Deep mutational scan, measured.
Amino acid sequence: EEKRQVKQVAKEKLLEQSPNSKVQVRRVQKQGNTIRVELELRTNGKKENYTVEVERQGNTWTVKRITRT
């Protein structure tokens, strides 16, 4: 359940930055209360990979860091 929520948060964050792209989740890793989500962003056939680190704060998820990989 929490992985599902985190995927959603990570996707939304990337789509905010580039709204007309397609996002696909590649991998989800958990480390303590930080969850790392690896995503693939496609814009006009151009692929970019991103890693989004999401942290739990109380009962909400906040995006800590977005890295292009």
Rank of each mutant, 00 (worst) to 15 (best):
S18Q: 10
V6S: 05
R36W: 14
T51I: 13
T43C: 05
L41G: 02
R65M: 11
V54G: 01
K47F: 10
S21H: 03
K64A: 11
E1A: 10
Q24A: 12
G32E: 05
A10F: 02
K11Y: 05
K3E: 15
T67N: 06
L39A: 08
L41E: 01
A10K: 01
Q17F: 14
K3G: 10
T34Q: 06
N20L: 08
T51P: 00
W61N: 01
L41Q: 04
W61F: 10
V9E: 02
E40M: 11
R27G: 09
R36S: 11
E16L: 08
R42S: 12
Q17I: 15
V37A: 02
E12D: 14
R68H: 09
K22G: 05
I66W: 04
L14Y: 01
I35W: 15
Q5G: 09
R65Y: 09
R26T: 12
E48R: 06
E48L: 06
V25F: 10
S21T: 04
L15S: 03
W61P: 01
Q29H: 14
I35M: 13
V37H: 00
E12R: 11
K3S: 13
Y50T: 01
R56F: 11
K7P: 03
K3Y: 15
V9Y: 06
T51D: 04
K13F: 12
V9H: 04
K7V: 15
T62N: 08
G58P: 02
T69H: 14
K47R: 13
Q5C: 07
V37Y: 02
I66K: 01
R27M: 06
V23C: 05
K30N: 10
T60I: 13
T34D: 04
G58M: 05
N20R: 07
S18L: 13
N20Q: 08
E12W: 04
K47N: 08
R27A: 08
E55R: 05
T43M: 09
E2T: 10
K13I: 13
L39I: 10
V6M: 04
G45M: 07
R56H: 06
Q29P: 00
V28N: 01
K30Y: 15
K22W: 13
K3C: 14
T51K: 04
L14T: 02
V6I: 14
A10N: 01
N20S: 11
T60Q: 14
E38W: 14
V37T: 00
N20G: 14
T60E: 14
E12A: 14
R68P: 07
R26G: 06
R4H: 11
K46S: 09
W61D: 00
K46R: 12
K3N: 14
K7T: 15
L14M: 13
K22H: 12
E1Q: 08
N44I: 07
W61H: 02
T51H: 05
R42H: 12
G58S: 06
V9D: 01
T34K: 06
L14N: 01
T67D: 06
Q31Y: 15
Q57A: 11
R4Y: 09
K11L: 13
S18V: 12
E55M: 11
K22F: 14
T69W: 13
L39P: 00
S21M: 03
V52F: 02
R36N: 09
I35N: 03
I66D: 00
K47T: 13
P19M: 03
S21Q: 02
N59V: 06
Q31W: 15
L39E: 00
T67E: 09
E38R: 09
Q57N: 12
R68L: 14
E1Y: 04
I66A: 02
R68W: 04
T62E: 10
N20Y: 05
K30Q: 14
K3V: 15
G45K: 07
Y50L: 03
K46D: 06
I66P: 01
E48K: 05
G45D: 08
Q8F: 04
Q8L: 07
T51E: 11
V37L: 06
T62W: 14
P19L: 03
T34C: 06
E16V: 04
E48M: 08
K7C: 13
T67V: 12
R4C: 07
K13R: 08
E53L: 13
N44K: 10
K11D: 01
L39D: 00
T62L: 13
E53F: 13
G32Q: 04
E38Y: 15
S21D: 02
L41S: 06
V54K: 00
K22C: 08
S21W: 03
E12F: 03
R26I: 14
K11I: 15
R65I: 06
W61C: 03
L15Y: 05
K11T: 11
Q29A: 11
K30R: 13
L39Q: 00
T34H: 07
R68E: 05
Q5S: 11
L39C: 11
K3F: 15
T67H: 08
K47M: 10
K11R: 12
S18K: 11
V28E: 01
Q24H: 14
V63H: 00
Q8E: 09
L15Q: 06
T51Q: 07
G58H: 06
T69G: 09
G45W: 09
R27T: 06
L15W: 04
T60G: 13
G58A: 06
K47L: 13
E55C: 05
E1L: 04
V52A: 06
K11G: 03
N44M: 10
T69Y: 12
R56S: 05
E40F: 11
V9G: 01
N33S: 11
N20D: 09
L14Q: 01
T43N: 11
V63C: 04
K22V: 13
I35Y: 15
K22E: 14
N49Y: 15
T34I: 12
L39Y: 02
K13H: 08
P19Y: 02
N33F: 09
V28M: 14
Q29G: 06
S18D: 05
R42N: 14
G58V: 04
A10T: 03
G45A: 07
Q31T: 13
E48Y: 10
K7W: 15
Q57W: 11
E40S: 10
R68N: 11
K47Y: 11
